[in-house]
């Protein structure tokens, strides 16, 4: 095997640690960057450092933010009575893109995952309980992912919150809007059937 000059090998090694990037992609990225003008590369490097230096987790909801409390927590127009619990900041963004939800958020920064050794103490669960103790919240929406980890997290939280006397809800699983029943996979369809509700 041919050896790369040290700086090249170092960059390939660093890029490989990114999610979804294997050795080949890391190589391609490295040689792409080598060909770009230095200003462009500097811009990339500086934004990498800036994101680490300037972005913090919001002390209230644990979303990523450049000010604490974050814009969502500081916005008086948002309804403090409804709290939506998500796993990751990405999930919060997905909810926000709907433009439908006007309540507040709580980001757990993960889900219960025994295989990775992640238990309740590794998530922002205690912080969630502290927020709920302030008594502003009337409903908690559990919007964790519909996989086994997300489901376990939702079940765990539902049990934990039950004594607080709040309304605790779980987002529905089912059919994509605009899709045809005929083309839905059987698992989704059977879950949609399970989660049916009365109409009219």
């Amino acid at each position: 095997m041919a050896y790369y000059p040290e700086p090249v090998a170092r960059l390939i090694e660093a890029l490989q640690r990114l999610p979804g990037v294997g050795p080949k992609t890391a190589q391609r990225m490295t040689f792409f960057l080598l060909k770009r003008p230095v200003e462009e590369v500097r811009e990339l490097a500086e934004s990498l450092v800036a994101v680490k230096e300037r972005i913090v987790y919001c002390g209230t909801c644990f979303n990523v933010t450049d000010q604490d409390p974050c814009r969502l927590c500081a916005d008086p127009a948002r309804d403090a009575r409804v709290l939506c619990v998500v796993e990751e900041p990405n999930d919060l963004l997905a909810m926000e893109r709907t433009g439908e939800f006007r309540g507040r958020y709580h980001v757990l920064l993960g889900a219960l995952s025994p295989l990775d050794g992640i238990g309740p103490d590794d998530l922002k669960v205690r912080e969630l309980l502290l927020r709920l103790e302030q008594g502003e919240t009337a409903e908690v929406i559990l919007a964790t992912n519909p996989n086994v980890e997300g489901e376990a997290t939702a079940l765990y939280l539902a049990k934990l919150l039950r004594p607080l006397g709040l309304r605790v809800t779980r987002i529905a699983r089912g059919l994509p809007v605009g899709g045809d029943l005929e083309y839905a996979d059987q698992v989704t369809l059977s879950k949609a059937l399970e989660g049916r509700r009365e109409i009219g």
Binding site: L112, P114, P120, A152, K159
Partner: peptide, 10 residues
Amino acid sequence: DARLEPWSEQ
């Protein structure tokens, strides 16, 4: 027990 519960239920 508390750790097991959400997994037992599923």
